[in-house]
């Protein structure tokens, strides 16, 4: 395992630098690339689960069943302003104008007004919480009501959230909303109540094409890491350095 040795020596070197440099800055450059594949807190301990998610845009047919199931499973209000996951339809016409839409999050399906000959490119992009491990929402929560679990899921503590909405502002992906009845921030929990009982998430359960996949980033032989190895995956808004753990296959540059 030549690569591994190189990696370790690089890490040792950087660790030494970190000791010399000290402080938070050095810590954040410690594993610049590991953020993609290896656990945040203790990259050495790979025995534990570290959840991540993959969406294969090539496979998505925009049926919106994921968004629908998510609302059912998690008691998300049915009004079209509250979504833990939704599907966007991107249409780029021959003049290279980008048109994006997501009527009712895609739950009622999509219409395509353009004829095939007018379309340069078109595709669906399901969106949801990125479960970032350097998540801006967790960073800005003033009371500690949102947090990153030890297995890498960003959750909200309903009984502790004060509803200041700072996290909604801080999320670059628009994945949070204020629950109209609970008056607290709400977002995708990665169906934490399901995955911690060995079930899969509601959105994955109902996806007819297998466009969505959940998995353990620490499991090198697991399907998720294998998928990442085989495909060119990207995260959304990488320049914001949120440490997103939601990977997209076939992501176009137009998607924001």
């Amino acid at each position: 395992m030549g690569t591994k040795r190189v990696k370790n020596s690089r890490r040792d070197f950087l660790k030494k630098t970190a000791i010399v440099g000290g402080g938070a800055i050095a810590a954040s450059i410690l594993n610049p690339f590991d953020a993609v594949l290896i656990a945040s807190e203790d990259p050495g301990d790979k025995s534990k689960v570290w959840w991540a998610y993959v969406i294969d845009i090539d496979k998505c047919i925009g049926c919106g069943r994921c968004a629908n199931a998510c609302k059912n499973e998690n008691d998300v209000p049915k009004e079209p302003f509250f979504f833990r996951t939704w599907v966007e339809q991107y249409t780029i016409n021959n003049n290279h104008e980008v048109h994006v839409e997501s009527p009712n999050g895609g739950i009622d399906g999509f219409d395509q007004s353009l004829d095939k000959s007018d379309v340069f490119k078109s595709f669906f992009v399901p969106k949801m919480c990125n479960h970032c491990h350097k998540s801006p929402c967790v960073q800005v929560c003033p009371v500690g009501a949102t947090y990153d679990t030890p297995d890498g899921v960003v959750l909200v503590d309903d009984d502790y959230c004060i509803g200041c909405r700072y996290c909604v502002q801080a999320c670059p992906y628009g994945c949070r909303y204020i629950h109209p009845e609970k008056k607290v921030a709400d977002k995708c929990t990665l169906c934490y109540h399901r995955i911690s009982k060995g079930k899969t998430t509601a959105c994955i359960e109902v996806c007819p094409t297998g466009a969505r996949m959940i998995g353990d980033l620490n499991d090198d032989k697991g399907p998720l890491v294998k998928f990442l190895k085989k495909h060119n995956c990207l995260v959304l808004k990488p320049h914001l350095n949120t440490g997103s753990k939601l990977f997209y296959n076939s992501l176009n540059a137009e998607v924001r």
Partner: peptide
């Protein structure tokens, strides 16, 4: 106007 993330219709502050 144009496209906003569905959760963004509700302006928070």
């Amino acid at each position: 106007q144009g496209y906003v993330y569905p959760n963004e219709v509700d302006l928070q502050w």
